[in-house]
Design a protein around this nucleic acid. Structure first.
Length: 587
DNA sequence: GCCGTTTTCGGCCCGACTGTTTTCAGTCG
């Protein structure tokens, strides 16, 4: 939690400095906050291990911010921040999350109207006070009231799987409009980030007239709840599912450059532009330009993204990697023919099987046969049935009745054989790891499954050391092949349990236990950084749907995306392998 | 405040849209 607290304070300091029109510092604090929030280790532990020097190892953290972190660890406060708060005592976090309101406006509202929080802001707007301020008017006031209406009933980020399919539906309709040359869902959606704050779509056209037609269509779609702004090339709306959706219409000759630009991430793009500057080039959403002098620019707009990367001396980079986490350096090494280039990411069609799903035997909606047929339809070669045994999930399945489930599976497998199909159903279970690390089923039974998955479904709030030991004990059991959703987090709903993830990864390596990438849209557990950590440690992973119905198989795509964001290759993912090789790898 | 294949000092990514202005500041991504 201390990382979040410090990131929060640094973000607020950034806003306070921006209020005062101070240059560059706000961005410095903001960058530090982002990096601290993304750390896997607590700053407290980092400080304990190496003091100020160790803190300065964090990217974007220098001596100044390291000193402030030290001050927070020692005293629980940062003096400079306390002074800033005292000087302008406003609820920064909430006020800045109102669309269209930034630090400059907040400062003026505070100074001139005494606005300290959302309630004050709403009152000021309703009392027609905003329009009296110089530089503001009736429209600004109306926009604030509208933004507040949405602010109240929307959460800021959504799991990707919650919005992805709606967005694709809209994209497909726009693709079919006349005059549309190309479309692309860009931004964090294209990077397949596990959660998205807003969505971006790019449309290529060849005439202004077509651009206008598309804009008209976009803002009048039935999904639109509110229009933030509309222009000739750029518009922004809120959809009824509460996500903000931006559209950008560009000339088809700039589509490549625009795809690159709008895919981001912001930090990835900033790095690229720095490289461009060093090469005497200028990169923006319209292309990559030669700068001969300040006034004469030779347009050299890029049709394909690849051109841009190549002109910068880099290999093209997969969207899922574009987070400025070393991919640019890797792309440079690869372009120069050096080792340690970009990973050859697992592909979206590379999964041969699925290693976690539930049937009507426990809490699933479909029969084993229905699950098998659906998997077969989507091109899989094998599935593993992993029903629960504990009575809270199922009162049908126990160590006696499981024999019947196995008979059912045998029968189905014979049927596939007769049909000359190589498809195979494997016998498995998702067994609970109890508080003391023992498993819910006895080893005598566990031995008989083809594959045993183990996971935690109870007592999430154990201490870090105890929770780590609990899982490690399960991994040491020679019958346990896979640990499912290893951290237990639910995106936007429940944090991961306290866990020494490095120890878990290390033990997985030592015991030959597979770690799962659970593909269910609000789990995606392991997350990208942990996947990369596991891969680097030589731990093998499985991407599993955890399907409770045939419609859930579609989420495998999200699991693959997460694996790609963790730099995983085919050789890291056991269910991308043929069944025999996969089974041989298991304990 | 951070950072270094040009640097320990002097840079710091870039453009669209809005609302209020008659040329621009603020916000967003």
């Amino acid at each position: 939690m201390i990382n979040q607290e410090i990131a929060h304070i640094l973000n607020n300091i950034s806003e306070y400095l921006a209020m005062e029109d101070i240059e560059f510092k706000p961005r410095a604090y903001e960058k530090a906050a982002v990096n601290i929030e993304a750390l896997n280790e607590s700053v407290f532990d980092i400080y304990k291990s190496g003091g100020i020097k160790a803190l300065e190892e964090i990217p974007a953290v220098g001596y100044g911010i390291a000193k402030k972190i030290e001050e927070y660890i020692k005293t629980g406060k940062i003096k400079e921040y306390e002074q800033l708060k005292k000087k302008t005592p406003v609820d920064l976090e909430k006020l800045t999350s109102v669309h269209g309101i930034g630090p400059k406006s907040i400062l003026r509202f505070y100074k001139e109207l005494g606005v300290k929080n959302i309630e004050d802001l709403e009152k000021a707007a309703k009392d027609k006070k905003i329009r009296q301020l110089e530089g503001f008017g009736f429209k600004s006031e109306e926009n604030i009231l509208m933004a507040l209406k949405f602010f109240k009933n929307s959460s800021s980020r959504f799991p990707l799987g919650y919005v992805l399919y709606d967005l694709r539906n809209i994209e497909q309709r726009i693709k079919k409009l006349s005059g549309v040359k190309n479309t692309l869902l860009s931004g964090s959606v294209r990077r397949m980030k596990e959660d998205v704050g807003d969505a971006d779509m790019l449309v290529a056209v060849s005439s202004k007239k077509d651009a206008k037609k598309i804009m008209d269509y976009f803002i009048h779609m039935s999904e639109v709840a509110h229009i933030y702004n509309k222009g000739e090339t750029k518009s922004s709306v809120k959809l009824k599912n509460y996500i903000n959706f931006d559209i950008r219409v560009v000339d088809e000759n700039s589509f490549g450059a625009a795809s690159q630009y709008f895919t981001g991430s912001k930090d990835h793009n900033i790095e690229l532009r720095k490289i461009a500057i060093k090469k005497g080039l200028k990169l923006n959403e319209y292309g990559i330009f030669q700068i001969k002098n300040q006034k004469s620019k030779i347009k050299n707009s890029a049709k394909a993204e690849e051109e841009i990367y190549n002109k910068l001396g880099l290999k093209w980079i997969e969207p899922e990697l574009r987070e400025n986490k070393g991919e640019i350096q890797a792309a440079l090494r690869q372009a120069q023919g050096k080792p340690d280039g970009l990973p050859k990411l697992i592909g979206y069609n590379d999964l041969r099987g699925d290693l976690q799903m539930h049937s009507k035997w426990s809490d699933g909606m479909n029969t084993i046969e229905e699950m098998a047929n659906e998997a077969l339809k989507t091109g899989k070669e094998y599935i593993l049935i992993t029903d629960h045994f504990r009575p809270i999930f199922s009162n049908k399945l126990n160590s006696q009745t499981v024999v019947k489930q196995w008979q059912e599976i045998d029968k189905l497998n014979s049927k596939f054989k007769i049909q000359n199909s190589k498809f195979r159903i494997l016998k498995g279970c998702e067994v609970d790891i109890m508080d003391n690390g023992e498993l819910y089923l006895e080893d005598e039974i566990l031995k008989k499954f083809d594959v045993v998955c183990a996971s935690i479904h109870s007592n999430f709030k154990m201490q870090k050391g105890k929770m780590t030991e609990r899982i490690i004990k399960a991994m040491k059991n020679p019958n346990v092949d896979i640990i499912c959703h290893p951290t237990g987090r639910l995106i936007g709903a429940r944090p991961a349990y306290k866990l020494d993830i490095e120890k878990i990864v290390q033990t997985a390596k030592e015991t030959g236990t597979i770690l799962e990438i659970n593909a269910y849209f609000n789990r995606l557990d392991l997350k990208d950084d942990y996947i990369r950590m596991a891969k680097n440690a030589g731990v093998k992973l499985a991407i599993s749907s955890d399907a409770h119905s045939i419609s859930h198989f579609q989420y495998l795509e999200l699991g693959i995306a997460q694996a790609r964001r963790g730099w995983a290759e085919k050789k890291d993912i056991i269910n991308a392998w043929p069944i025999d090789k996969m089974l041989k790898t298991l304990k």
